[in-house]
């Protein structure tokens, strides 16, 4: 799914305004407030939905090849984080929807119906 479509489905706002983002392609999504979970479960080329606005979130995305982040529940990260993401060419979006509804809308919209691997 193109990020442009994600933005429409979630009525989201782009935070990294300097980046080209509309055509960035994500294959699936991972909704988590736990970076430990993201590290254990996320697939490459995913979209991350999270309510956490720490620099570690950006780092984790770099480690995992996550293509973009949507901050849910109206959370907006500080400017330093937006700059960090811009440098890393990682588009950031923000929506006022809560996590459950955000994930639901994207899933219904057809994003990544694939199941995550079972954690052993």
């Amino acid at each position: 799914m193109k990020l442009k479509r994600v933005q429409e489905l979630l009525n989201a706002r782009i935070l990294t305004t300097e980046l080209d983002w509309e055509d960035v392609e994500v294959l699936t999504a991972c909704g988590a407030d736990l970076m430990s979970d993201v590290l254990a479960f996320a697939k490459p080329k995913s979209l991350l939905l999270t309510g956490l606005v720490y620099p570690q979130v950006i780092r984790t995305c770099e480690i995992l090849d996550i293509k973009a982040i949507v901050f849910v529940r109206g959370k907006i990260p500080p400017q330093t984080i937006i700059e960090m993401a811009t440098q890393q060419k990682l588009p950031l979006l923000a929506t006022s929807l809560p996590m459950y509804e955000s994930c639901g809308s994207l899933y219904k919209g057809g994003l990544g119906a694939k199941e995550i691997e079972n954690y052993e």
């Binding site: 988590a32 407030d33 736990l34 970076m35 430990s36 979970d37 993201v38 590290l39 254990a40 999270t50 956490l52 720490y54 570690q56 979130v57 984790t60 954690y119 052993e120």
Partner: peptide, 14 residues
């Protein structure tokens, strides 16, 4: 910060 779920070591092993 989103860490401390006790998943790191098992994840390293995996």
């Amino acid at each position: 910060m989103g860490f401390g779920a006790g998943m790191g070591l098992p994840n390293i092993k995996k």
